[in-house]
Write a protein that binds this DNA or RNA. Structure first.
Lengths: 124, 124
DNA sequence: ATCATACCTGAACAGTTATTCATGTGTTAT
DNA sequence: ATAACACATGAATAACTGTTCAGGTATGAT
């Protein structure tokens, strides 16, 4: 795929510290993070981090409708964050990779530092 | 800190592997990740990872209007991801915490695996 | 004081997203 | 075969998000 412009945008280079991200790469990063940008998806993930769950149990745990849970599970599936197995009439979902828990921990530390989320910094 | 309900939701416990995330904690996680859920914000971050930048230069680098950049910088500021200094008429922005570059690397490695975003992703 | 430069901000608009509701698919029981 | 159960899916709707546009604020130059 052709690159957008001159030189700074080099999709093949190593990363955020090495070069300006190409639009395509930035897009892929954003898509991944956007999946984790919803509180109910985090609740689902945390429930699955405890142990694998049936959809119905998941819905009760996170206090959402089964339909809403099902829709969100599809999003998580598409990003390969969860996998599932059919067992009779039930479908069991689990985290496809527990590394997501590390991600959680890293960010959690950052958020636990003083000076809150959406509090405005000193204005100009 | 008051808890939402019975027991499984324990905001004080350590993390995603230990208990179901409280609604509040899930909300804060989601807000952080949502900030990283936009491709243009990643382009801005990657530009700042190269070196600190004036707003105008930033706009040219990422090929956005100054206004759009300014709006997005406020989002990054609110999440304490960037800081700024006024120098004459210019305002210089920089990454407040280069730990974000590690975050980028961790996620990037796995998105770069064969298949791509919504097709096939090598597990973490 | 006046003007130009550099950046910020509010409102509006278009595009996106998460939920609900109704329905559809697949499995088990009778 | 029929019914009940567990889950998935499409359409519709409400809420949210990012950009543009039209000013607005702060600084420096003349």
């Amino acid at each position: 795929m052709p690159m957008a412009n001159q030189s700074a945008t080099d999709a093949s280079a190593s990363g955020a510290a090495g070069a300006l991200l190409s639009v395509e790469k930035a897009q892929r990063m954003a898509e991944f993070f956007a999946v984790l940008g919803d509180p109910n998806r985090w609740r689902i993930i945390s429930a699955l981090a405890l142990e694998e769950q049936r959809v119905g149990d998941l819905a009760k745990l996170v206090e959402m409708s089964e339909s809403a849970v099902s829709h969100q599970l599809r999003v998580l599936r598409n990003m390969r964050l969860v996998s599932y197995t059919r067992q009779g009439r039930n479908v069991i979902y689990r985290l496809q990779d527990h590394h997501i828990v590390n991600l959680y921990r890293d960010v959690s530390e950052h958020l636990d530092e003083p000076g809150g989320d959406s509090l405005e910094m000193k204005p100009f």
